[in-house]
């Protein structure tokens, strides 16, 4: 039921906005076409502004992944994760989450092929995938679009959130699915 309602809202949210906004704007005597074009002008500029930030972040992450450093890091950190009861197989997916969305999805898919989507590991990595965003990507795109280079506490706070999300995912999967 919950799923039905949410997907109904998801399908209708955008058409609803595209319907409602021009009507209310017309009512308030806004010249809708002219106003749209004025706003849309900025689209190109914003996209181009992001490029250097995105290249910096994605190239660094891509090189890191290609080097095999992730596997090394997993081995290094596994005593800690064993201690909190994280299955060793799920660890690469957890560590990849803030770095790369497509990378995490790839690892999660492989694990579910191997262990089955309804195994504990399958459910856990599925929860990992949906529970946080790709922090570094969001930082590059959002700050890049306005030319902010000094990100201050945004990255550490995002990573603290990622870590909290991982631990919460592990905890709730234990409670709901056992294992």
């Amino acid at each position: 039921m919950f799923e039905r309602i949410i997907s109904f809202i998801s399908v209708w949210a955008i058409p609803f906005l595209l319907f409602l906004i021009p009507i209310l704007a017309m009512k308030n005597k806004v010249k809708v076409y002219e106003s749209f074009v004025d706003g849309a002008k900025g689209g190109f500029e914003v996209a181009v502004k992001i490029i250097p930030y995105l290249v910096a972040i994605l190239v660094a992450i891509g090189m890191f992944r290609a080097s095999g450093a992730m596997e090394l890091f997993v081995r290094f950190i596994s005593p800690v994760t064993d201690f909190i009861g994280m299955p060793a197989e799920a660890l690469p997916a957890a560590l990849m989450r803030p770095l790369s969305g497509s990378g995490t999805l790839g690892i999660a898919t492989e694990l579910m092929k191997e262990h089955g989507p309804d195994s504990f590991i399958g459910r856990l990595v599925s929860t990992f995938f949906g529970s946080t965003e790709t922090t570094f990507y969001v930082v590059a795109v959002y700050f890049g679009s306005v030319g902010v280079k000094k990100t201050r506490h945004a990255v550490p706070a995002g990573l603290i959130g990622d870590l909290a999300g991982l631990i919460a995912a592990l905890f709730i999967c234990r409670v709901v699915f056992g294992g």
């Binding site: 704007a25 009512k27 809708v32 004025d38 849309a40 290249v55």
Partner: peptide, 25 residues
């Protein structure tokens, strides 16, 4: 990276346009 950024141009322009209408209203 460049492909991602370029891919944003269209939807970016669309939503900036709609948001400008919403703002002016």
């Amino acid at each position: 990276s460049v492909n991602i950024a370029i891919g944003l141009i269209g939807i970016m322009a669309l939503w900036l346009g709609i948001m400008n209408i919403a703002q002016e209203a």
